[in-house]
Design a protein around this nucleic acid. Structure first.
Lengths: 355, 355
DNA sequence: CTGAAAGCGCTTACAG
DNA sequence: CTGAAAGCGCTTACAG
């Protein structure tokens, strides 16, 4: 092995094709191909010779040529809404690992508004065997992409965006999550709920709003009088700082809810900081709940009551559903799977403070 | 357009090749190819006809065939140490975005111990134009991979692992980071330092230990008496919980340092929780510093003194270095770039408590 | 302006 | 047991 390969490129010219390689070993391309693919009926001596040269030169057959010849690409395209929110990244990491374990490599792209078409086109041109979407997307854009995939006969799966037309989906029952959380809070005496970053209008039967509404109705409470949202006062960011600002705005109001329900743990932790900055104690003065059960939620003071998405199980299911679609005629009806969440009660929720 | 494409596959058979497509439009493959590649000298009417059919059918040329014909793959392989630590993911997200902006797609794989060979082989078989490693790897394994890439004439870059033989690297000057932090703490009167998750032996001139040593020596202090590490008492995890456990172990010791230096923000925040659980106030009773300046570090109570890696600038530099290697003869000497960190002083560090 | 032919790097019948 | 030939889906000279 040369000491500095950069200075002696001539010593071992790069072998670019089986033709190059076969010439180098002194055999026919066919023979080389057979050894590489482990086909029977070769002299052990020939096999050894090729294997040794393979190891020495590090020659790798061109995957593109293999795929042209009909070998499956074993690639899955993954469209991410973003690579910044911890739960989304954790889903990606889990899915990537599961796919890798089953021999698939992942082509990962971020699907920013307007680029969806190009991303899916790129996946199709790479002849991926399936496409996964992780996140919540612009409805019409993703539905158009899915129609395109269906027309091409390429299986798809959407993780986290329930209610898309003709789409195979795996998504969390956020309604059930909120029912569980609301019941916990209602039992603690809470009747006035501040919503942090949670959209007002119910969008589907598995949305948070649906659950909040249902839980209130079941106790004979009215949504409009029981909830308050100040989301419109700040630029939407869904991060710590947004939560902190929202908390500050609530404290500037005359009427203060007895509990905050946050869209995610980041907003909840930001709100916690905002409340503590104002000298309030959680949960003595006000209760607080997050969503996602990120690791950090058990490290704050107080620790955070939150919802666990059960990501490992969700993604395992998703991988199964996805791979089951391969090599099988497409289903007539889309497959819709809903995952149950788990309420995690910690220190940040307590009895409602009597006004 | 059919209402439900799944039920009428016969209505629009999937077009798999330019031959299929050309037949569908009633033209020669050559002509279709020329339209797709925007070559001159075609009747506008022909161009329109092809474009329309392209839009209607959603036909996408097979990328593998294109690459076989010599078209560049415009792919970059990215090897990640893991997809779980926030700074690593942020680097990945930033790099992926920059590469995409310049027309490259990213093939992302997690490089777990022992899989390095397969990962790099896969990248080579896909004929990626360059390979990036993000993280800190098993030294011999990554050096072998880099030698392989060099032998294949494929450019590479390692982000975050300084001191690899013959490797192009971009890495943070962690030594300078620790010097800045130590000087800040020494000025506050600290003389006894608890190290949380920070390796004891200096590994290179840009390592944390090098900086800690240098800062102590400059004040005439002895490393052995000035620092204490209890890392060995718990299973290494580098997460919140590891920090919490380490803090508890320190509190069980007879002699308590006046400040904790943590490997990262997660360990620092876990330690903060551990200290608070024991009824201690930070920084009144003990000071605490993290590393990475994650968003969360400005939301804790107290907010965390930490080090900013300046990830955006680092990755921008990395992308420039990487892409500059393309279409250019390989450099004789490896390129080694070191990035300067920034100390971020917040509430968690204060004057040393007098014993 | 359009089409038939060669060739990219492979594998797979088919001959020897 | 090994090798020459065809063909996967493209593009690019080269003819018409």
């Amino acid at each position: 092995m040369p000491k500095n390969p950069r200075l002696k490129p001539a010593a071992s010219p790069v072998l670019r094709s089986t033709a190059d390689f076969a010439r180098h070993v002194g055999l026919a391309r066919t023979t080389v191909s057979r050894v590489i693919n482990g086909q029977p009926g070769l002299k052990q001596k020939t096999i050894d010779r090729v294997q040794r040269a393979l190891a020495e030169t590090g020659f790798t057959p061109n995957a593109h040529a293999l795929h042209l010849k009909g070998k499956r690409t074993a690639m899955v395209g993954i469209c991410m809404e973003d690579l910044l929110t911890p739960p989304a990244v954790r889903k990606l990491a889990t899915l990537q690992r599961l796919l890798r374990d089953r021999g698939f490599s992942s082509l990962i792209e971020v699907f920013t508004p307007g680029t969806g078409r190009d991303v899916v086109r790129h996946f199709l041109s790479m002849r991926v065997e399936a496409v996964v979407f992780i996140g919540h997307f612009h409805r019409e854009e993703i539905e158009a992409r899915i129609a395109e995939l269906i027309a091409h006969g390429t299986p798809h799966l959407v993780i986290d965006h329930y209610g898309l037309k003709n789409a195979n989906t795996v998504s969390l029952d956020r309604s059930a999550a909120m029912v569980a959380l609301m019941n916990h809070l209602l039992d603690l005496g809470h009747r006035s709920f501040g919503l942090l970053g949670i959209a007002r209008a119910p969008a589907s039967r598995y949305d948070r709003m649906t659950g909040i509404n249902a839980a209130l109705r079941a106790r004979g409470l009215d949504f409009t009088t029981a909830t308050l949202s100040l989301d419109h006062l700040h630029e939407r960011r869904n991060d710590f700082d947004y939560g902190r600002k929202l908390a500050a705005s609530f404290l500037a109001q005359p009427h203060r809810p007895t509990v905050f329900l946050a869209l995610n743990d980041a907003i909840a932790i930001g709100a916690l900081r905002g409340l503590q900055d104002a000298g309030l104690k959680v949960p003595r003065d006000i209760s607080l709940a997050g969503f996602n059960n990120q690791d950090i939620s058990s490290m704050t003071s107080p620790t955070l009551t939150t919802i666990d998405q059960n990501i490992e199980a969700t993604i395992a299911t998703a991988a199964d559903i996805l791979l089951a679609q391969l090599d099988v005629p497409p289903r007539a009806k889309p497959l819709v799977h809903v995952v149950a969440p788990a309420l995690v009660v910690r220190e940040s929720t307590g009895p409602a403070r009597v006004a």
